[in-house]
Structures are given as structure tokens and as C-alpha cells.
Design a protein around this nucleic acid. Structure first.
Length: 565
RNA sequence: CGGGGCGUAGCGCAGCCUGGUAGCGCACCUGCUUUGGGAGCAGGAGGUCGCCGGUUCGAAUCCGGCCGCCCCGACCA
């Protein structure tokens, strides 16, 4: 490909809105262009990388028995009503009507369609197990797109789905995907770690996210360097030291003016925050008031709480009036004497005696509150957020926190979708069962951006060979006044192209500075320079983009090297 | 959805405070010169100043509303 023909312009200045290196370099290098918030066009160079990534994924999913297919982007809403997600998912699911007035949605994922196809096509255990997949556009009307290609609203995902007759089959499919993902990300040049994750709106029983560690990552991970424990903070457990046993003492009210935060309360009473109980109030999507109690030295983990109370439609912070309506006082609240609320108490609070808790009266608290004696929990579960330095749940060493970008995930879905759509098969004995599903996603654009995050320097991108849009970038210098240079460069370009080597040839009549700077910005693995100087030195100058290693070699040698002979 | 910021040529910006009909650098086009690290000279093209309304003799500039984009938070398979 001649650069003079490429639909491409490089930018000298950074686009002002681009914060992340990947965003900046992909825009400057003419790989992508933004159309709207979280909506991008892939220019020819960007599409080439996208396709290289797609091919790596295709090879690995094919290798575990995946069958590629393609499912639509526009779905009848009926399917989503059947699965229950039409009601369960908020405005990120785009809904519209077709000309006939029928409700339609834009696909944000494809479990429904897969379950529908299974219902249609699968009737016998002999047809299982199955892994099907496709590369298809998803649209998610995210409340806030950000970070260039990291968090977008429209993107292509590889999503595969396993359909199995039994749990053992699902375990196998899950492990196959786990291993395939490790090979995929390794081939893409991305260091990822698999962390335990929340199942979210997917339902199901087990999930892992493949995380690329990056300070701009939106997910917080809890990692143990000693034993390898790794989990998303949304679900991470830690080992809480057990408090010393104490004789429960009688409750007494104490006046605590102006102490509507745990910090001010602990300071006023001159006690540790671990001697207090903190109440947080939420309302579920269906209008239930939830009172969450954790010890004052911990934070409520909303994901754990959502899962604990099975909050359809999520949780929102409660209004003061809603809290008072249940007999509690914001800032001085506790479940003591409360009514009409679901009380969720953290495990550790159950073990912590004689805590200071709200008296449900402005300016007053209660000493020696003991959960179980002074109020009755509806649920006793872990609802705290793990923090840096907390003991690892597996080995007890101090965990650390890190940010990560989720580039892939794997979910054990179970039978939620096949039951909802009533997809069934007959086993050997003629008994009817619902197949068990798994779902497995990789966001291609996000992976692309992460690869740039991992492979760039201050001059530009340095693509791994596995995904580079072109294997080499040929730069001619002085070709417009030196026929020998032009002939040598034209010839090398023609021979490599004929040999099937993807080569980008900068034949523009630009100054050397412009051409070399662009070559470094664009980031092909090898930069080949042909100039009067290189010809005098014996051939072409070859620069390895990543390492910067440079040498002048005979053109025939360069050609042989690039053709892999 | 809450908080903050920004919308002036393809990109980066000035002009706005103090109203008088738009400018700079890069990129782009033509010509000549130049050619191993973002060249020089000369000429040229390109803008409903985000949109709507108001104030005014006159609005990029002042006022109101709306839209878009970015950042932080909430949210997030």
C-alpha cells in the first residue's frame, strides 16, 4: 500500500480531548476518528488492526471447537421480554419501534438469540455440547463514554456461547475458554490477569474477567502477591480479624451533638471507628428500603448488597424522608426500633460486641448495641469493601489494590435463559432438560486500545507483529531527485507485495523528518529506509520499531527476512 | 443524572472582559528553491464564530434557552 493513496492524515498536535495515550496516538496516527460520544469510525489502518485481532481470536476459538456464525444487531423486543431483561435493564438498552409499531431493541449482547436458536434447533442430547460464536456490533447506551476506545457505546465483540447437557460440560467449556483467552491475550501482546467477578445482569453462578492492568482502568482489583488471589473489588472477600469477645452490656443513650458522620462520632466519644456501627440506606428498583449495617471502619459494597437482597433494578441512595418513614434518622440512624425495612448486617458486625450506633434521634447515639439482641437482621452476609492491606482470604497476606481494564470475560450462565425461553432437549432416557449455557466476551476495540497502551513510547505506537496493520513501513528518502532510490524502493515494495508481505510504502514527496516521524507514530514493527545514504552504505536501513535497533543491510537480505525465507 | 470545563477553518489556538462584521500556527492548493529528523519564499483557497431567541443602529463578543463534546462522580454485560 502506498501511503500517498491511503485514506489517512496524521496530526501533528494532540487532539485536546484525548487523555489516554491510546486515544491520542490512534487519532493522531489516522487509525480512528470520533463520530459522537463513544462512537468511532475505524479508518483503513484501524480496521486492519481490528481484523488482525479478530483473526487471532477466531483461530483460538475455532481451536476449542467454536463454530462461527452471525446473529443480528436488531432484535424483536419480544425475546428480551421473554428473558426478563427488557424490564430488568435500564436505558442502556436502546428500544425503538419499527414501522409496524413493534417494539425492537439494539443488541447489547446475544444470550437471548442463542437461547432462541437452541430452542429452535436443539432437541437431543446428541447435539450437545456446542460452542457457537460471532463477531458482532453491540450497542450499549452508556451514561458516560470515556477514554477513547476504552469505554464506547458501539463496539464489536467476539461473544461465544456454550450449550451443554450438564454441569460437567459447562465446567469444560468454561475451562476451554479460560485457556483460549490466555492464549489470545498472549498472542495480542497483552498481559492480563483473570479475576473473580460479579455476574451482574448476566445472572449465573461464576464469572471471571480478564484484566489488563492500567492506571486508567475503571475497575478496581484486589490482588494478593503472595498466593495469587485476584478478584474484582466488587466481589472480593478479605479475612477480617475476629474481634475479642466481650460481655454484652446494657444499652445506654448518649448525647452526641453534631456527630452525623462516623469520623466526627468517633472523635467526639474518643473511640475507634471499629467500635461503631455505620448505617447506609438504599432503595431497590421495586421500592424496598434497605438498611445496610457495617462497622464504622469499613465501607458498604453496593455490588455485594445488591446481590444479597436480590435488588432488581439495582439500588439508589434513600432520601431522608424515606429513612424517617421507617422510623430512622439520617446521620443518627440504626435498625434499633426501625420498621418496614430490610436490614442487612455485615458478618463482622454480628461478631462485634457493644458498638455505638444511632439512636434514631438527632444528636443522640446508643452505646453497647449488639446485633441480634437489640435488633434483628434479615440477612447476615459480607457486605464490606476490601481495602489495601486487608488480609487475603486465601493466605492472610496483605492484599493490594490495582486498576484494570476489562478486555474479556467468561460467565457460567446456568439455565436462566433456557428456562426463561423454555429451550429443552431430551436425554438418553427420554427425559426433558434445560441445557446449561455459558457466555464469553472479548471487546475488540477495547483490546485494540489496550494493546496501544501496552506498546507505545513518546514517539508513537509500536505494534506487536501479531496485530500490526502492516508488517513493515518502507520509507524512501530523496526518491524524487534520485532515480536509484526510487527504483530500489519501488522494486522492494513491488516484490514484497507480490510475496504476500503487507507493506506500507511512504512514497510521498515529503521531507525526511515528516516521513520518519510518521513512521514512528504509525508503529509498524519494522521501518525500512532507502536513501542515497543507505544505498551508499550497502542497501537499506532497517529499524526495529520497538527496540530502536538499527542496521544497514543489503536489500535482498531485508527482502528475505521480511518474506520469512 | 449531579459537579466542572469547552464549542471560532481539517487540527491546535487568539479575539469575548471593554459590542463596530474574524485572526495566528500547522495542515491544504499553485509555482520556484530545498531534501536523513516535523524546510524556505511567493501566491491562494477554506469559517452560517454550535443552534434558537433577546438586547442594540450594530453581537463571535452582552442576556436567556437549547444542543454537542470533554473531565470528575453516580452508573456500568
Amino acid at each position: 500500500m502506498r501511503l500517498s493513496n491511503l485514506f489517512f492524515t496524521s496530526l501533528r498536535d494532540d487532539p485536546v480531548e484525548a487523555e489516554m495515550a491510546s486515544h491520542r496516538l490512534l487519532v493522531r496516527g489516522g487509525y480512528v476518528r470520533q463520530l459522537g460520544a463513544g462512537i468511532y469510525s475505524l479508518l483503513p489502518l484501524g480496521l486492519r488492526v481490528h481484523r488482525r485481532i479478530e483473526q487471532v481470536i477466531r483461530e483460538e476459538i475455532d481451536a476449542i471447537g467454536g463454530q462461527e456464525m452471525e446473529m443480528p444487531v436488531v432484535h424483536p423486543a419480544e425475546l428480551w421480554k421473554e428473558s426478563g431483561r427488557y424490564a430488568k435493564i435500564g436505558p442502556e438498552l436502546v428500544r425503538f419501534k419499527d414501522r409496524g409499531g413493534r417494539d425492537m431493541v439494539l443488541a447489547m449482547t446475544h444470550e437471548e438469540v442463542v437461547a432462541d436458536l437452541v430452542r429452535d434447533l436443539v432437541s437431543s442430547y446428541r447435539q450437545l455440547p456446542l460452542i457457537v460464536y460471532h463477531f458482532q456490533t453491540k450497542f450499549r447506551d452508556e451514561p458516560r463514554a470515556r477514554g477513547g476506545l476504552i469505554r464506547v457505546r458501539e463496539f464489536v465483540m467476539k461473544d461465544s456461547y456454550s450449550i451443554d447437557a450438564d454441569e460437567a460440560g459447562l465446567d469444560r467449556a468454561y475451562e476451554l475458554h479460560h485457556a483460549a483467552y490466555q492464549r489470545i491475550f498472549e498472542r495480542l501482546g497483552l498481559d492480563t490477569i483473570a479475576v473473580g467477578a460479579d455476574v451482574g445482569i448476566m445472572g449465573g453462578s461464576l464469572a471471571h474477567e480478564f484484566m489488563y492492568l492500567n492506571p486508567h482502568g475503571e475497575d478496581t482489583l484486589v490482588l494478593c502477591d503472595a498466593c495469587g488471589y485476584a478478584a474484582n473489588q466488587q466481589i472480593a472477600r478479605v479475612a477480617r480479624p475476629k474481634p475479642a469477645a466481650e460481655e454484652p452490656l446494657p444499652v445506654e443513650e448518649v448525647e452526641t451533638p453534631g456527630t452525623d458522620t462516623i469520623a466526627s462520632l468517633a472523635a467526639f466519644l474518643n473511640i475507634g471507628t471499629d467500635r461503631t456501627a455505620k448505617a447506609a440506606f438504599f432503595v431497590t428498583g421495586d421500592g424496598r428500603l434497605v438498611t445496610a449495617i457495617v462497622r464504622g471502619d469499613h465501607e458498604v459494597n453496593e455490588t455485594k448488597l445488591v446481590n444479597a437482597v436480590k435488588a432488581t433494578g439495582g439500588l439508589r441512595p434513600a432520601q431522608a424522608e424515606e429513612i424517617r418513614a421507617a422510623g430512622m434518622e439520617p446521620g443518627y440512624g440504626s435498625p434499633v426500633g426501625a420498621h418496614d425495612t430490610t436490614v442487612v448486617v455485615d458478618e463482622l458486625v454480628m461478631l462485634s460486641p457493644n458498638l455505638v450506633a444511632g439512636a434514631n434521634r438527632p444528636g443522640f447515639h446508643l452505646r453497647n448495641v449488639n446485633a441480634g439482641r437489640d435488633f434483628t437482621p434479615d440477612l447476615e452476609v459480607d457486605i464490606t469493601t476490601a481495602g489495601a492491606g486487608d488480609p487475603c482470604p486465601q493466605c492472610g497476606a496483605a492484599v493490594r489494590l490495582a486498576n484494570g481494564i476489562e478486555v474479556g470475560n467468561i460467565f457460567k450462565l446456568g439455565t436462566d435463559f433456557t428456562v426463561a425461553l423454555d429451550a429443552t432437549y431430551l436425554d438418553e432416557g427420554g427425559a426433558r432438560h434445560h441445557p446449561i449455557m455459558g457466555s464469553y466476551g472479548i471487546g475488540l476495540g477495547r483490546a485494540l486500545a489496550c494493546i496501544v497502551e501496552a506498546h507505545h513510547d513518546d514517539k508513537g505506537i509500536a505494534w506487536p507483529v501479531s496485530v500490526a496493520p502492516y508488517r513493515a513501513h518502507l520509507v524512501s528518502i530523496g526518491a524524487h531527485r534520485d532515480d536509484a532510490v526510487r527504483d530500489a524502493a519501488d522494486g522492494l515494495h513491488a516484490r514484497l507485495t507480490d510475496a504476500g508481505v503487507d507493506i506500507l510504502y511512504d512514497d510521498r514527496d515529503e521531507s525526511p523528518g515528516v516521513k520518519l516521524t510518521d513512521a514512528e507514530l504509525l508503529g509498524m514493527p519494522t521501518i525500512v529506509t532507502i536513501s542515497p545514504r543507505s544505498l551508499a552504505g550497502g542497501g537499506a536501513e532497517v529499524t526495529d520499531r520497538a527496540s530502536g535497533e538499527r542496521s544497514v543491510r543489503p536489500i535482498a537480505d531485508v527482502e528475505a527476512e521480511l518474506t520469512g525465507s
